[in-house]
Amino acid sequence: MLFFSYFKDLVGREVTVELKNDLAIRGTLHSVDQYLNIKLENTKVVDQDKYPHMLSVRNCFIRGSVVRYVQLPPDGVDVELLHDATRREARGG
């Protein structure tokens, strides 16, 4: 549940989601669920020329299982906080 909560805190921020098929999409994080499925708004494909079919896609749902990376805004990562939360979770909550 840790990363679910973590991503929930990032809602409204600009992120870049890189998929396992190398497609990278930048957009505003709209929502996340327990599978880490992601909904993005105002999306823009990073390499637009290579993926012309994505031109008119503004909002999208990405299945959690196909995500390789989520690139976050630098100030969106608090390693200290994650570290603490991890230890708390490991101890059983």
Partner: peptide, 22 residues
């Protein structure tokens, strides 16, 4: 079947679906 889905995108009807040169 869900496992085959990568992405579901809403098409903006205001915008051209494909670049004009296609």
């Amino acid at each position: 079947r869900g496992e085959n889905v990568v992405l579901i995108g809403e098409l903006d009807l205001e915008r051209e679906e494909l670049p004009p040169h296609m």
